[in-house]
């Protein structure tokens, strides 16, 4: 139990680190990658759904706490993504990097669309402007960073499989 709490705290601080310092360091022209989606996706893909769901919810809530104005909305959307990824994982082979990338792109598109639509009360004038100026660059940047993260995770997974002689 203590180890579980310790692991969760470690994850939580990793999330907050990515949301604060890492976001600032990787920000280009005010656009930073959405590390939240990448982390939620990694949790959903790497752990059992019984563990993944509460962890994803907690992580999403911590990410959301950064901006109290939209508290709950980001949590709901990210949690929904975690649920969807967790479900998809059971039906298709998501061990392959391309499948993970498709999932990441889909998740980020869903997140940006749902979050911005709900946050702006479906005001399509503002929405299209925000989508073009913020969401689309963030989506591209997140996919690029996500590719690097998922590729590294994939490599680590393959090494682990080889080490255990399961491959």
């Amino acid at each position: 139990m203590v180890i579980r709490i310790f692991k969760f705290l470690l994850l939580a601080y990793l999330v907050t680190f990515s949301q604060t310092i890492l976001s600032n360091l990787t920000s280009i022209l005010g656009i930073a990658p959405n590390f939240g989606t990448i982390i939620i996706l990694l949790i959903a893909l790497r752990t059992e759904s019984q563990v993944a769901l509460p962890t994803s919810f907690a992580v999403a809530l911590i990410i959301d706490a950064l901006n109290p104005e939209t508290l709950g909305l980001g949590t709901a959307v990210r949690f929904a993504i975690a649920v969807a990824a967790s479900e998809i994982r059971q039906h298709i082979d998501v061990e392959q990097l391309p499948a993970q990338m498709y999932l990441l792109i889909g998740s980020e598109v869903c997140f940006q669309t749902l979050f911005q639509a709900l946050a702006n009360s479906f005001d399509f004038g503002t929405l299209s402007k925000i989508y073009l100026e913020v969401s689309l660059p963030t989506l591209v940047y997140t996919v690029v960073v996500g590719f690097v993260v998922l590729a590294m995770a994939d490599l680590e997974f393959k090494i682990e499989v080889k080490r255990r002689g399961l491959g």
């Binding site: 809530l61 911590i62 109290p68 709950g72 949590t75 949690f79 649920v83």
Partner: peptide
């Protein structure tokens, strides 16, 4: 999870800030 999220979203801004503050201070 979804119900809690939506309940949080439905709160007033000061109530949201009240919920978010401990999380901000810890993390």
């Amino acid at each position: 999870g979804l119900v809690v999220s939506l309940l949080l979203f439905a709160l007033q801004l000061d109530q949201k800030a009240f919920v978010a503050r401990p999380l901000q201070e810890v993390f």
